[in-house]
Design a protein around this nucleic acid. Structure first.
Lengths: 199, 199
DNA sequence: TATGAAAGTAAGTACTTACTTACATTATGG
DNA sequence: CCATAATGTAAGTAAGTACTTACTTTCATA
């Protein structure tokens, strides 16, 4: 489906998404969506054959955008050090606006009804884990990292970085430390391990 | 609210919860709940003043149970090694039945409307992180671990262990490795770090 | 200026939902 | 065995919801 900039379709899609975030699927009524988009409900149904399809188009639209943004964040050049790369990634993640993170919130709710390969959260996790796996493989090749399983490391790093963000931005947990302190400490843990030296 | 074993109230609460898992809040109609509980809808409303309160009682009930179970899993004796402890915890987590994990699925959906201090996922995370923080503090005191920030380490370990479980059991991602392999590898990473030695 | 597409208005359909009322039935314990 | 409490049945209420139909208005453009 091609959606032109500034078109009625686009306004409806945007409205759907913002109402979806605030009200959830069943709370996002076609009436509210039409109102927010500034069109009549009839127009909405002339453009989209059902509420279900509209919502799924809106999700698709926003999750594609978000995944693109994540892909940018996790891009790397071969020279960058692991520490620098991970610091940068995490800082950029934390600086995403609430608006940009909306899709994450919406994705966390998809615990049923949606086919596995369409679940936003799974698509996000796969994208990031793939990118991280490639990066860590390179760094193992370059001998900056020792011979560990790169895809398990990638899953761990994904977990650490995203779980903080999810707890904080999706579920509203107040963070205990400032970002710089937190980043420094978790990188120290991952880079150097936790065992004491005198053993 | 005291709910006696085998009482009508209990049957209604159980039914609510199982329908809630399969259908979500708006799909869990009082009609379905009553039917599943084997009572009439009228009885349901005589026992609980609204659907909303019923669901919140059911969630409270099941999340308290689950948190108790988690507390058991994360208990420790002062002698146990970090490696052994974390291995045991993760194995026990993975062996929780789908039924026991239902509340986690239900909790992941609570991205709005619910006051922060009642969100199931936040209560779970706080319980585990507290317990892990105490454990790691002890192990730092005992010099098994070096001087790192125990609560950041706890958050990291919580993230690694739970994110795998959530991806797998809540969102349906197929795991790439078997548990033993995975456990061994992520513990190696955390215990020994990832930097190559020759630097 | 005439035409056709896109939008709106008003009304309605068919269904579902949480919750209620009034009354009948069953079960239980003193 | 009888009074009382717990449950069921049947019906209904009031509101909402996705979606439709029929007709009118707006507006760009050829």
């Amino acid at each position: 489906m091609e959606v032109k900039n500034g078109s009625v379709e686009e306004r409806i899609i945007n409205a759907s998404f913002h109402i979806l975030e605030k009200e959830g699927f069943s709370g996002a009524t076609t009436k509210k969506i039409a109102e927010k988009a500034g069109v009549s409900e009839v127009t909405l149904f002339r453009k989209f054959e059902s509420k279900e399809k509209l919502i799924s188009i809106a999700k698709e639209h926003y999750s594609t955008d978000f995944i693109e943004k994540l892909t940018e964040i996790f891009q790397y050049t071969p020279e960058i050090s692991v520490e620098e790369y991970l610091t940068q990634c995490f800082n950029k993640l934390v600086n995403l606006t609430d608006n940009e993170l909306t899709i994450l919130k919406v994705g966390m709710e998809e615990v049923r009804d949606i086919p596995t390969d369409k679940k936003v959260f799974l698509r996000i996790s796969e994208t990031i884990i793939d990118e991280l796996t490639k990066f860590f493989s390179l760094k193992i090749e370059q001998k900056e990292l020792r011979e560990i399983n790169p895809s398990i490391l990638a899953l761990n790093m994904f977990s650490i970085m995203f779980e903080s963000i999810i707890l904080w931005k999706v579920y509203g947990k107040q963070p205990k430390y400032n970002i710089d302190r937190y980043t420094e400490d978790f990188l120290d843990i991952i880079l150097n391990g936790i065992k004491s030296d005198n053993k």
